Simulated assay, not measured.
Amino acid sequence: MKAEKTRDFETGLELALLDRRLTFDFSYFNRLSTGQIIMPRLSYGSGFVLRMMNGGEVKTYGTELQTTINPIRRDNLKWDLTFNFTQYKGKVLSLAEDLPELYESDTQVLGGVRSGVVPGYSIGTLTGTRFKRNDRGDVLINAQTGLPIAGTDRYYPIGDRIPDFTLGIVNKLTYKDFYLTFLWDWRKGGDVLNGLDYRLYINGMSSKTLNREEPRVIAGVLEDGLQNSENPTINRIAVTPYSSSGYYTVNTEPQMFIEKDIYTVRLRDVTLRYNLPKHLTRKIGAQAGLSVFVTATDVFLFTNYTGLDPESNMNTLA
């Protein structure tokens, strides 16, 4: 074991204009972590279940820009606008020699998907299993059932959860004793596992399964000894899901339920507060103050995600 080391570089700029009615705060960072101490779950054949080791190298970098604008600044009326833009990326440069992948071992695997990192890929990688294939990449089909053959236990990168950027916009309005604030939250990019779609599909409750009585042929080649020859046997076995109960569980690859480049525009919260007049609180104390408020959260959501909410998906793989 070696000591874990991190090398950081950070720079920034802060600027205020027009009597601080307009301010900018920009920062950039670049971080390299080497010899990270990890405790992965290993193969039982290694003689260990968990093993503490140095995990490799990880590079992270990003920018953040915060801008505040005061369009109105009067005695009884104030309006403040704050924009917070964040862009953050990370890449796994290497892992310990024993690990082709590092994953969260205590996280339930849903539909063959898990949160894992692979050398050369993002720190927000989603990994998943895939069908068994021949040397040229054709899906291998079981000659008895006409269904794809599950691959090995190896997991492959199939998605990246890290967004391209996030932008938060905070509005603060003050009029005499009334105070109104609301936050718009914009998140662009990143991949999400639609766990609800997976559950509905394998249980025959998804709209994608309505044609279950129609025969279909799955593209691939038969595993009949000729799969790696120059002339593999093209699959022509028709399968009818209605009479083949394993169709919707066997004929699924995790990447089928990964939704790419998700965006969300969300009204995160709204708060309206009223500060009670001083003559009503004077009996409590000279400096006492009371206010009443009401808050609503997650008021609106606009997204291209087909599930319920990308932030409350199954297994938190978002």
Rank of each mutant, 00 (worst) to 15 (best):
E213K: 13
G225L: 09
N171L: 04
D160K: 08
Y155D: 05
T249L: 05
F293Y: 15
Y155N: 05
I169S: 04
R199G: 13
R216H: 03
Y248S: 07
G195H: 08
P148I: 02
Y201S: 07
Y247L: 00
L210Q: 13
T252L: 06
I162H: 01
Y201M: 06
T209A: 10
L147R: 02
L167Q: 10
A286G: 15
N228H: 11
N211S: 10
E213Q: 11
Y198K: 04
Q255T: 08
D177V: 01
N231H: 13
R199Y: 15
L210D: 14
R236A: 12
T152I: 10
I202L: 12
V192D: 00
D164M: 00
I218P: 07
V170S: 10
L222A: 06
K188H: 12
E259D: 06
F257C: 07
D185Y: 07
L222V: 09
K188R: 14
V239H: 04
L290H: 07
D153P: 04
S244Y: 11
I218E: 11
I149D: 02
G168N: 12
Y274W: 14
V292P: 11
M256I: 04
L196T: 12
G246T: 02
D269S: 14
M205I: 08
Y156G: 04
L276F: 06
Q255Y: 07
R154S: 09
M205F: 15
I258G: 03
Y155P: 00
R212M: 03
L200E: 15
I258C: 04
L290P: 03
Q287I: 06
I202R: 12
Y175E: 03
K172F: 01
G204R: 09
G204D: 08
E223V: 00
K278A: 14
G204S: 00
I202K: 10
Y156I: 04
R273C: 03
T174K: 15
L272D: 03
N203G: 09
L210W: 10
R216Q: 11
D191A: 09
N235P: 11
E253W: 00
V250P: 01
L200G: 03
K208T: 13
R187V: 10
E259Y: 09
L280M: 13
L276H: 05
V239E: 10
R266G: 01
R282Q: 08
T174A: 14
E230R: 12
V250C: 08
G189Y: 07
L183S: 02
S206Y: 07
N228W: 12
Y242M: 14
Y156C: 07
P163C: 07
L147Q: 05
L267S: 06
N171H: 14
R154C: 07
V250F: 05
K172T: 13
D164R: 14
V265M: 09
A219K: 14
D160P: 00
P163Q: 01
Y179N: 13
V221I: 02
L280D: 04
R282I: 10
G168L: 00
